[in-house]
């Protein structure tokens, strides 16, 4: 907080206050004060999950729901291609991996890939676009608390990621039957992972200086991590050195967790992964709130 903003008593506020040269005559021409409105008892947007929060959440969800050509169709097409090429055309020439047909082995990874990409894109794009055209001021100048704002952006973006996850599973079902061996883990990972990337997307949207920055984040950071995240191969197929290196890639734990949920196959402890990812999500979300509170990238 800026120095000198504290320690002011509201009582000082009455009367002539323009400490400037010249005769101030405060109140000399004030219209009849009797007509001034009573200003108590306003709603101020409600609590953390109040009307204000729900309005922003609704706005954020409607934004992507109404633009399926930009939000749902692209991952659907991409994944039809993945399944057709990697699953069917190449998959027939690849032996079973971890006791599963190759198509089924890659499905969890593709679900994660689609879910995190869309979760990240939604919050980063929505915030960046609002900054670019300055209409994020509509939210910023409202009485919403910063926690409510951030939570609405994150939940909406995570929801888009989860929906895309469902779409990808749906497409998978066109090619094969999809088992769900560990429903709890599947649900937990499919909640936490999109939440984490939705939270990261908030930071991305605040950091970006132009639209290219968003592309860079997606192409040069997200995508390599995903492709080296054991989506298309099991860790066990790598040399020990690369296996160890892979453990530094957070994507490995997410893909492993979701794969455990679907297929019951694991190479890293899914419970430990879940705990670490949940903690990480909480930390990133907290950073989001702090950045909003500071107005980072949002205000002068």
């Amino acid at each position: 907080m800026a120095p000198g903003t504290d320690g002011h008593s509201g009582a000082d506020a009455a009367g002539g206050t323009a400490g400037t040269p010249g005769d101030v005559r405060a109140g000399a021409a004030a219209t009849d004060g009797g007509t001034a409105r009573d200003t108590t008892g306003r709603a101020t947007g409600g609590g953390l999950l109040g009307v204000g929060f729900r309005s922003l959440l609704k706005r954020e969800v409607l934004r992507f729901v109404r633009r399926p050509r930009n939000t749902f169709i692209p991952p659907a097409i991409t994944n039809v291609l993945y399944f057709a090429v990697f699953g069917v055309i190449l998959g027939d020439r690849i032996d079973e991996v971890a006791g599963e047909p190759y198509l089924l082995f890659i499905l969890p990874g593709l679900v994660v890939l689609g879910a995190i990409g869309n979760a990240f894109e939604n919050s980063s794009f929505s915030i960046f676009h609002g900054r670019w055209n300055e209409y994020i001021h509509e939210t910023l100048t409202s009485p919403l608390s910063y926690s409510s704002m951030v939570l609405a952006y994150i939940l909406a973006a995570a929801l888009r990621g989860i929906i895309v996850g469902f779409i990808i599973v749906g497409i998978g079902l066109l090619f094969t039957s999809v088992p769900i061996e560990r429903p709890f883990y599947l649900a937990a990972f499919m909640l936490v992972v999109p939440l984490l990337f939705a939270s990261l997307g908030v930071i991305g949207g605040l950091l970006a200086e132009d639209f290219d920055d968003l592309t860079v984040m997606n192409q040069f950071i997200l995508r390599p991590l995903v492709f080296f995240g054991a989506v298309f191969y099991p860790l066990g197929s790598l040399d020990p050195l690369y296996q160890t290196l892979s453990l530094l890639n957070p994507m490995v734990y997410m893909v492993n967790g979701v794969r455990y949920g679907f297929l019951g196959f694991q190479e890293v402890d899914p419970l430990a992964s879940l705990v670490v990812l949940s903690g990480l999500t909480a930390v990133v979300a907290l950073v989001d709130v702090l950045l909003f509170r500071r107005g980072y990238g949002l205000i002068d």
Partner: peptide
Amino acid sequence: FPIHEVLEHKAGYHG
């Protein structure tokens, strides 16, 4: 959003 929805959202942010 169409302008009437923009207004509804803004009102919503104010509770």
